[in-house]
């Protein structure tokens, strides 16, 4: 199960990077970027998973005494949670820049922005 998720995450990262690097349209680059972002999150969550254990929330199903033997690692979850929220902020920022670029040049084709050539 962990392997499935990690393979999925890696494939999503590769697909997202491919889309981001080969598409000429800025908006599509941002879309691909969000896909790669999701892939990274999946890999991180899969790393924290332990087969046969349950969520790190204590209630009737998981009493405090058994917690260490029954829950999965909560640290990657906290990190991924942070990453998702920041990801939305970054996406918004990129979209705002895309809008401003469009306002400036009237196009979103990356080839038209010759100032950015390297």
């Amino acid at each position: 199960m962990i392997t499935i998720a990690m393979v999925t995450g890696f494939i999503l990262i590769l697909m997202g990077l491919y889309g981001a690097l080969t598409n000429p349209n800025i908006l599509r680059m941002i879309v691909s970027f969000t896909i790669a972002n999701t892939g990274v999150n999946i890999v991180l969550v899969a790393v924290g998973y332990i087969q046969g254990r349950t969520a790190p929330i204590l209630d009737e199903a998981v009493p405090v005494a058994e917690a260490a033997a029954r829950i999965i690692d909560p640290t990657p979850q906290a990190l991924v949670l942070t990453a998702i929220v920041i990801g939305l902020g970054v996406t918004t920022l990129m979209l705002t820049y895309a809008y401003k670029l469009y306002e400036m040049k009237g196009t979103l084709n990356i080839a038209k922005f010759s100032e950015l050539k390297w």
Binding site: I50, P56, D59, A67, T75
Partner: peptide, 26 residues
């Protein structure tokens, strides 16, 4: 894959209920 919690995870699992008092360790 791990089969046991690592050191940090174990610390959080064992201590957060008494020290912090939250049911949700995250």
């Amino acid at each position: 894959p791990d089969t046991e919690l690592n050191q940090t995870g174990r610390y959080y699992a064992e201590h957060s209920a008494q020290d912090i008092g939250t049911a949700n360790i995250t």
